[in-house]
């Protein structure tokens, strides 16, 4: 998965993650790993829920399971946005 991520999507992913984790925004960078941010499996579920609402997408379990850092997360979101039918 190596979608080119728009700066807006990356920014919104980082902001959503920071809000969900109650972290200050400057702690979250595109290269932060979940391990560095102290994100466990339950936090991950909460982040996916927040991202689904933020972007109005459905994130499948199997692709979510492989994500380990912020950049991969943003790439996954971008991929789902690209696959979304154009808004009518």
């Amino acid at each position: 998965m190596s979608e080119s991520v728009s700066p807006d999507v990356l920014d919104r992913v980082m902001r959503t993650l920071a809000e969900t984790q109650k972290l200050s925004a400057d702690k979250v960078t595109p290269d932060s790993t979940f391990e560095q941010l102290g994100i466990d499996s339950l936090d991950g579920i909460n982040i996916l829920f927040a991202l689904e609402n933020e972007f109005n997408i459905n994130i499948p379990d199997e692709s979510a399971r492989l994500v380990r850092d912020v950049r991969q997360l943003a790439e996954g979101v971008q991929k789902l946005l690209n696959e979304k039918p154009a808004a009518s």
């Binding site: 579920i45 996916l48 829920f49 379990d61 199997e62 979510a64």
Partner: peptide
């Protein structure tokens, strides 16, 4: 579904 523990 939201808890992501159910098998597909």
């Amino acid at each position: 579904e939201a808890l992501r523990v159910v098998s597909p």
